[in-house]
Amino acid sequence: MKQPLANQVYDTPLDEIMDRWKRDSSYLIEMLQDVQEHYRHIPEEAARRLSEELDVPLNRVFHIATFYKGFTLEPRGKYPIAVCTGTACHVKGGSRILENVMRELGVEREGQATQDLLFSVESVRCLGCCGLAPVVTVAGEVHGDTSTVKTLKIVEELRKHAQSS
């Protein structure tokens, strides 16, 4: 994969993130979380720089970045879609929604973004609001009692919104 954002990684956000955690390597997971939040993924350059600055082997940074589900190495879409596949959502059809939304958006594997980088689709293991099952979050907003059709409607609206602005 071509490395985007290389210059951006060297500007302040990463330094700010490291300073926030006092450049203490025991907070590496917290730092990676902030990196993920800021860049919507863990850019390789950011991982390299964390490794150098905190004196942690690069393989450990990647071990962590690939071990925990909260991190991705490729960028998520502008509006990440997370389909809950917790047990309550599963029995109410959550897994089917995931499959359908991925197919309709042309996303082949979880975590991948659409070609226009507007959306990415992934499953999440229980958002802890099982009374609303099945649940989908789009760009962090919770949609309960949802379905494939309802989710695709939200996607259409966001796409229109993005095109007009």
């Binding site: 997971i29 917290e30 990676l32 962590i64 071990f67 909260g70 991190f71």
Partner: peptide, 25 residues
């Protein structure tokens, strides 16, 4: 407070503590 990063196995005591020390759980 320590934030987890999404790993079910971190509910296991030694994995949870490894994660708190900044290592894979």
């Amino acid at each position: 407070i320590h934030r987890g990063a999404g790993a079910f196995v971190c509910g296991e005591s030694s994995a949870l503590m490894a994660s708190m020390e900044g290592r894979p759980g």
